[in-house]
Design a binder for these strands. Structure first.
Lengths: 135, 135
DNA sequence: GCCGAAGTTGCGAAGGACTTGCAAGTAGCA
DNA sequence: TGCTACTTGCAAGTCCTTCGCAACTTCGGC
């Protein structure tokens, strides 16, 4: 896998644990560190939670994963290549929906034009009520 | 103060501590529970941190304050009547800027039209780089 | 293919932020 | 003024995340 380069280029190593964490994030779509740990442990029970935390941080520095705040507190991790959508978090039922980045294009443009603010659309969650809960 | 009604109507009481917490939130604009406690203690040192947490929650239920996630984890509280702006959080310098809700109007409309999602604009922070850090 | 330096892991402990249980105190209706 | 139910303060507890450190593994070089 090409991920190897991203790591090596920064003097980092590709360990089995690191591969497992990365593939867990890719499989899960979005996941908290706890969920990643659980997923990894399904096949490799010995892996320590702090290793998961450290690897998520490392992989984020390298650019292979990214985190988003979905609100409740902790961060949620995504594989970097999947970060092409916004998160619509329902304040009622807690579900997390997706919307393409394009939906925010004019909003981002507004902020750039009026405030010089360069919005990172992938990093924030959008709160509100999902279609199901609006009813 | 009319706040009394909001509380009484739900069978709650207006205690000195509760008033202090509310006015601290109003003075501070946006503040974490810790900051609220500090502000309250400046005049009334005896107030317990858990009282602040409990009162913020109570005041939120009543609708006098509201919380927003600015990202790092903990919630930030605002007086409900001041929640007329978005938060632009700079991922570089950490500053929190404001923008009127109107800036997101078309974005909100998009989400409503395309996904039936009813966005609560006041609840989410917008991440990115502020004008100063873009340079 | 073997070596050694430096990055990594596992584990336990520490830290911070918030929550909970409970007895004592107090607001506010009667 | 009395009572009852809501509140407070305090201490202990929980949850999530980070740290320190010794043992271990990766990987470039010999």
């Amino acid at each position: 896998m090409a991920d190897k380069h991203e790591l090596r280029d920064k003097g980092l190593r590709l360990t089995p644990q690191r591969e497992l964490v990365l593939s867990a994030v890719r499989e899960l779509g979005h996941a908290t560190p706890e969920e990643v740990a659980e997923q990894v442990r399904a096949t490799h029970p010995g892996i320590n939670l702090s290793t998961v935390y450290r690897n998520l941080e490392t992989l984020e520095n390298v650019g292979l994963v990214q985190h988003t705040h979905l609100g409740h507190g902790g961060a949620t991790y995504h594989a970097a290549e999947e970060l092409t959508h916004l998160h619509l978090v329902c304040s009622d039922c807690g579900s997390v929906g997706d919307a393409p980045i394009g939906a925010a294009a004019n909003f981002v443009q507004n902020l750039a034009d009026d405030y010089g603010f360069k919005t990172d659309v992938t990093h924030f969650a959008v709160y509100g009520l999902c279609a199901a809960c609006v009813k």
